[in-house]
Every structure is written in structure tokens, then in C-alpha cells.
């Protein structure tokens, strides 16, 4: 109960903190919108050439683009989440402060990232999506049930996203120059989340692999739910897939965390 209030406060603080970055938010919305336009016209050309590619029709493909732009900041595939800050704290030794507090490190950062992504869903997600809806014909569901199902998939996707980034950030305890690992993770995330192209357009083994990796829980899974491709049993399978990765990766994160804080040294005087 008391713990719950603490982490709610952390999440609320993170939300308000990101809300203070007004210029960054406006710039981000602009970038997402421009990028969305470029990608949308590219997809339209592509789907003209290959109608029904990946099982999507053209308006589904365009919807996918704007959905991707809307979720980009929230799922933080290009970075910009809590992890930059955590890595910096490990590097400078400020992590010392997080460690002597009576709070759990993973829960703390999870709460902070929930607050951040909640803000970015609203602040960075809604405008590009609405813009896309004005300029293009989007294949959006009319029933509230599908939207609700979509939101659940987004939340699960955010959890998986957090779990991956937490693991990457903890590596900074061992590799003080961890920028390389982080860049690699961003690259993998950009491709395997389906942010560049929907994962269901990839044929064969590569497609199978991409759809089985945790990153597909970030965008591909929520997109398929919103586009009405997952209903009934398939919907539950999608949830189970996302939840399994979330639980698994969070558990690994806990193990790495306890190894890190027990064995590894806090930097600086």
C-alpha cells in the first residue's frame, strides 16, 4: 500500500517533469509528423506496387505508419527514455544515492518510465496520429472494444520496452563506456520493432525470427490489434506473447540488478 503510493508519486513526478520540456515536445511532434509524411508516401508507393503486402491493404499500411510515429517516443526505440539517465548515474556514481534509499531500483525506474511514456503517449502521440487522420484515410476501428484491446497491448509493449532498456542500462555497471551497447540496442530495436517496415512483410526465417523477438511486442503487436488483425483467441495469444517477454525480461533484469549491486563498485568520491 505504502509502496504503491511511493511509485505512484515517482510516476507522477516523471510525468510532470517531461511536461516541463515544452520545446522538446513540440520539436518531437514536428519531427514525428514530417517523418510520418515521408514514410506514408513511401508506403503508398510500395503498396501500389505490391497490393496486400504483408496482409495489409493500403489504408492499413498508412495507419501503421502513423501509429508507429505516435508510439515512437513512448516506446523509446530511438532512446530518450530513462536509460540515458540511469547509465549516466552509474557512470558518474550518482547511483549511490539511488542505492541507499529504501526503494527498489527496478521498480523506481519502471515507475519513472511509466510516467514518462504516459506523457509521451499524450504529448507526442496524439497530434501526429490526428494529423495523419486528417490528411489520409486511416483504417481505425469504430468500436471502443478494439481501442481498449489496443491500449492493453500498448501497456504490455511499454513493459517489454522498459525491460529491454533496463537490461541494456545495467550493463553500464560492467562496461563504463557502454555507449556502444546502447547504440546496438537502438539499431536492433528500430528494425525488429517494425518501426521501419511492418514485420509481417518479411518472408521466411527472417520474418519468423523478427516476429518472435521481444521487440515485436512494442509496435507490431499493438498495431495488429488496432488494425483488427487479432481478435478472439489470437488476441489472447498476442497478449500472452507480450506478457511472457515482459515477465521474462523483468526477471532477468532483477537478477542482473542484484549481481550488479552486490559485486560491482559505485564510482566516484
Amino acid at each position: 500500500m505504502g509502496t504503491w503510493r511511493l511509485y505512484t508519486a515517482v510516476a507522477a513526478g516523471a510525468f510532470r517533469r517531461y511536461a516541463t520540456y515544452r520545446v522538446a515536445t513540440a520539436a518531437g511532434v514536428f519531427t514525428n509528423t514530417v517523418f510520418g509524411l515521408i514514410l506514408a508516401y513511401t508506403y503508398i508507393a510500395l503498396w501500389d506496387e505490391r497490393p496486400g503486402l504483408g496482409g495489409y491493404d493500403q489504408s492499413q499500411a498508412v495507419t501503421y505508419v502513423w501509429l508507429g510515429q505516435g508510439l515512437l517516443a513512448a516506446v523509446a526505440v530511438m532512446g530518450g527514455g530513462f536509460e540515458d539517465e540511469l547509465i549516466e548515474r552509474i557512470r558518474t556514481g550518482d547511483i549511490a544515492i539511488d542505492l541507499y534509499r529504501p526503494a527498489d531500483l527496478q521498480m523506481w525506474w519502471l515507475a519513472a518510465d511509466v510516467g514518462r511514456s504516459a506523457f509521451q503517449l499524450l504529448g507526442r502521440g496524439v497530434v501526429p496520429m490526428a494529423f495523419g487522420g486528417l490528411v489520409f484515410h486511416l483504417a481505425l476501428p469504430a468500436d471502443a472494444g478494439t481501442w481498449l484491446a489496443f491500449l492493453v497491448a500498448v501497456v504490455l509493449g511499454l513493459l517489454v520496452s522498459f525491460a529491454i532498456r533496463y537490461l541494456v542500462a545495467l550493463l553500464a555497471f560492467w562496461f563504463m563506456d557502454g555507449a556502444g551497447v546502447q547504440q546496438l540496442a537502438v539499431l536492433a530495436g528500430l528494425f525488429f520493432s517494425g518501426m521501419t517496415l511492418p514485420l509481417n512483410v518479411f518472408p521466411g526465417a527472417l520474418g519468423e525470427l523478427a516476429r518472435a523477438l521481444p521487440w515485436s511486442a512494442l509496435l507490431q503487436a499493438p498495431a495488429d490489434v488496432l488494425l483488427g488483425e487479432r481478435t478472439g483467441f489470437a488476441l489472447w495469444r498476442t497478449y500472452a506473447f507480450q506478457a511472457a517477454w515482459a515477465v521474462g525480461l523483468l526477471a532477468v533484469g532483477r537478477m542482473v540488478q542484484s549481481a550488479a549491486t552486490r559485486r560491482v563498485v559505485v564510482q566516484g568520491g
Binding site: 513526478g13 510532470r16 517533469r17 516541463t20 556514481g93 550518482d94 549511490a96 544515492i97 534509499r101
Partner: peptide, 8 residues
């Protein structure tokens, strides 16, 4: 170091 929330 600081324990305070930098931006708030």
C-alpha cells in the same frame, strides 16, 4: 551529489 529531483 544531490538526492533532489532536478527538474521539479
Amino acid at each position: 551529489r544531490t538526492t533532489l529531483w532536478w527538474d521539479l
